[in-house]
Design a protein around this nucleic acid. Sequence first.
DNA 1: GTAACTGCAAACGATTTGCAATCTC
DNA 2: GAGATTGCAAATCGTTTGCAGTTAC
Lengths: 141, 141
Amino acid sequence: MTVDEVRSTPQRRAVLDVIAKAADHPTAAEVLDRVCEILPGVGAATVYRTLGMLVESGHIAELRLGTAAARYDREVGHHDHLICDNCGAVVDVHAELDRHAVIDPLETRHRFRATGYDLRIHGSCAACSKANTHRKDSANV
Amino acid sequence: MTVDEVRSTPQRRAVLDVIAKAADHPTAAEVLDRVCEILPGVGAATVYRTLGMLVESGHIAELRLGTAAARYDREVGHHDHLICDNCGAVVDVHAELDRHAVIDPLETRHRFRATGYDLRIHGSCAACSKANTHRKDSANV
DNA sequence: GTAACTGCAAACGATTTGCAATCTC
DNA sequence: GAGATTGCAAATCGTTTGCAGTTAC
């Protein structure tokens, strides 16, 4: 009969600290780098394990785009993302999506019980749009 | 100076055939299995290469959810997805999302140039909802 | 005939897991 | 001091790539 307590360790505090300060959406590898700056020698497994726990407990959110590595978001409330297909930047935004108009009809039509949604808007950010104004460019969705 | 022609091979025809017939959203591994049923011995690399080409050329669409493997969709026009967090089923749907009300304000506010969006609605499908009506259940988004 | 294609096996990147040593409570 | 946690290395998973042999046109 274990208590399964969650202990406070320097490593965990460091990960939490890094995430709390991260304005961008760092990957696990980036979190590891930053953690090692304040606490050298931390292993990758520890960071992965800690991030996993934090996601499980709802303290941080996980974001998965394309093939790339998972990204972590300190923002846990519902929000949407603007994704720049050119430079990879991800911006948290709040879309005014009318659930009654968009989700409800689909729930009824497909007898689906929606618990949430995920809206990602692709395109190019301000910086990239400006840079590419006079250049050839292609975008995916 | 090569012609860079694209040749028609039995393997490619088989992959195309499998995708065309797939009502679900098979992963590369599932496509490989099905391809091998009609043309035994096909290598995984060939399937991955072929799927990659088809995505590139816009003949099929790639769908990436969570950690899992990429899924392939014969439906290439814009559409949205209902994702059952319980059984993993993915259903293609058309959401009535008002771009003017949802996307435009974000473009202006963040000086973002949107090229498209991706809406995924999570929850539980008809079958799972029915099965879990009287059971404990948790869902993620 | 020749460049494109195939299958295999090795290489890869991201993430997970087994385990002995080490820390927290 | 017991059990949770760590770091390392090995293992996994999905996918890509190098390469020599094979095939489509």
